[in-house]
């Protein structure tokens, strides 16, 4: 990584922040902190998207994730009465196998990325226009797009069916 390029400095800062935030998400003993730090991590990934010239995706990420999904999570936290504030036992006791698997995964993924791509540069950043994305969705990916819309519909109905209280009980 060439630190004489300003972009790389930005990347480094954002990346370190994201890693720190996501560590808080999985380690924190406070549920609220975890959920809020997920916002931080996702915000970081939105910044990464902008760095990669994908403003539209970044915008969608902010709107959908940070605007909607996190709110949903907060509702979930409150409805299921997860102990808000510091709790003693948010994790179970068997941490070491999990940590070993996670570290090994990181080693394999990062190692293979470095081994296969080395120092290959991403060519100069030029933003993809939103109209191009629109054209791609409705030309090349129109069938997956429709499928995804059905998935959303199914999820909507499924959510209602699952969460609704049984009239008898």
């Amino acid at each position: 990584m060439d630190l004489s390029v300003a972009q790389n400095w930005f990347f480094l800062i954002i990346a370190l922040f994201m890693v720190a935030a996501s560590l808080v998400v999985v380690i924190s003993r406070n549920v609220m902190h975890a959920a809020l730090m997920l916002v931080g991590a996702l915000g970081g990934s939105a910044a990464i998207f902008i760095l990669l010239g994908a403003e539209f995706v970044a915008g969608v990420l902010v709107l959908v994730y940070i605007g909607a999904i996190i709110v949903l999570f907060l509702f979930g936290v409150m409805i299921t009465r997860v102990p808000i504030g510091r709790a003693r036992s948010l994790d179970h006791d068997n941490r070491w196998p999990a940590a070993a698997v996670a570290i090994a995964t990181f080693a394999v993924l990062a190692g293979s990325a470095v081994a296969f791509f080395g120092d290959e540069e991403i060519e100069g950043v030029s933003a993809v226009r939103t109209s191009d994305i629109g054209a791609t969705i409705f030309e090349r990916f129109v069938v997956p797009f429709e499928v995804v819309s059905f998935v959303l519909l199914a999820a909507l109905i499924g959510g209602i069916v699952l969460a609704r209280k049984d009239p008898e009980s």
Binding site: M1, A15, S22, I48, A98, L109, A113, E120
Partner: peptide
């Protein structure tokens, strides 16, 4: 910017996510 730096960042996030799921 190299491609590898994004992949390493992504690997870090993914592994942390795995840890969270498991623990």
């Amino acid at each position: 910017m190299t491609i590898a730096q994004f992949l390493v960042l992504s690997a870090a996030l993914f592994s942390i996510g795995i840890y969270g799921v498991l623990v």
